[in-house]
């Protein structure tokens, strides 16, 4: 069994270490962050995730939708029922058709998806110099490096090195493949004012919004970790019992 495990680990190690590609997309190693949701008992830091939602709502949502999130989901971040209703009502959603056969606008309800900034992808492109701002509801697991990548991207804006040809309307970002990104630096110190008095520095906002986006991508991480621990504990005990029974049964067979 040990042989097997070490073989499996060896194979995993081999596959987990892909060669860096020598194309133009070479990026420095991502800055590793301490995340509350890492590890076997990892949970989402609610205060950070709520601040992150504020950053998303006041900054990111100008261009990026979170298609897979509903207002009701926000209750998981620790918002009360009334707060969730208030957040939902702050959005105008299109409903209908009504009895007259017409579509109409109404304030959102918790059961509504959080509406995006643009009616369709074409409208999004026109407003963004031809680039399509990606949906953020799964961004934290749709990129290699996950949360560390998103954090790196949000804090990785720099002046281009001398001789680097930056296309018009593009920005230099050391963690973006190819280093040319259509998104201008989204965060600047003091871009939002946190109600809890946390200073709104760029790394702080990036950290908070990544916590929020990781929750958005993996809302069931906490039940997963909790269930996983119980399952593993059960299996360890089961393995112990089966091993003892196996020794007992086989004791007369040798």
């Amino acid at each position: 069994m040990l042989n097997l495990l070490s073989a499996a680990l060896l194979i995993a190690a081999v596959f987990a270490a892909p060669l860096p590609s020598n194309a133009a997309e070479e990026t420095p190693p991502l800055p590793r962050q301490e995340w509350s949701f890492f590890g076997i008992f990892g949970t989402y830091d609610r205060a950070s995730a709520q601040r992150g939602f504020q950053v998303y709502k006041e900054v990111c949502s100008a261009c990026h939708p979170v298609k897979h999130l509903f207002s009701r989901d926000l209750a998981e971040l620790g918002y009360s029922e009334d707060e969730v209703k208030a957040i939902a009502a702050s959005y105008q959603v299109t409903d209908g058709p009504n009895d007259q056969g017409e579509m109409y606008q109404r304030p959102g309800r918790p059961s509504d998806p959080i509406p995006g900034p643009f009616p369709n992808d074409q409208a999004a492109r026109v407003a963004n110099n031809g680039a399509l701002p990606p949906d953020l509801s799964m961004i934290a697991k749709a990129r290699d490096g996950g949360p560390d990548f998103v954090f790196g991207l949000l804090t990785g804006y720099k002046d281009p090195p001398p001789g680097f040809k930056l296309l018009t309307g593009m920005s230099y970002n050391e963690y973006f493949p190819g280093q040319q990104i259509a998104m201008p630096p989204p965060l600047s110190d003091g871009a939002v004012t946190f109600a809890d008095g946390t200073p709104a520095t760029v790394p702080q906002m990036a950290h908070d919004v990544v916590t929020f986006l990781t929750w958005a991508a993996e809302p069931n991480l906490e039940p997963r970790h909790r269930t996983g621990f119980k399952v593993m504990l059960f299996l360890v005990i089961a393995a112990g019992i089966f091993y003892a029974a196996k020794r007992k049964i086989w004791s007369t067979a040798h």
Binding site: M1, A8, I40, K141, R224, H225, T227, G228, F229, V231, M232, L235, V236, A238, A239, F242, Y243, A245, K246, I249, W250, A253
Partner: peptide, 27 residues
């Protein structure tokens, strides 16, 4: 019971590895 119990023990060890991936490294 000789191989049923041996298979059960092996199964529980395998399930530990499987559960680790499902619950802690699903992607």
């Amino acid at each position: 019971p000789y191989f049923t119990i041996k298979d059960l023990f092996g199964l529980s060890v395998f399930l530990l590895i499987y559960a680790f991936f499902v619950f802690y490294a699903p992607n």
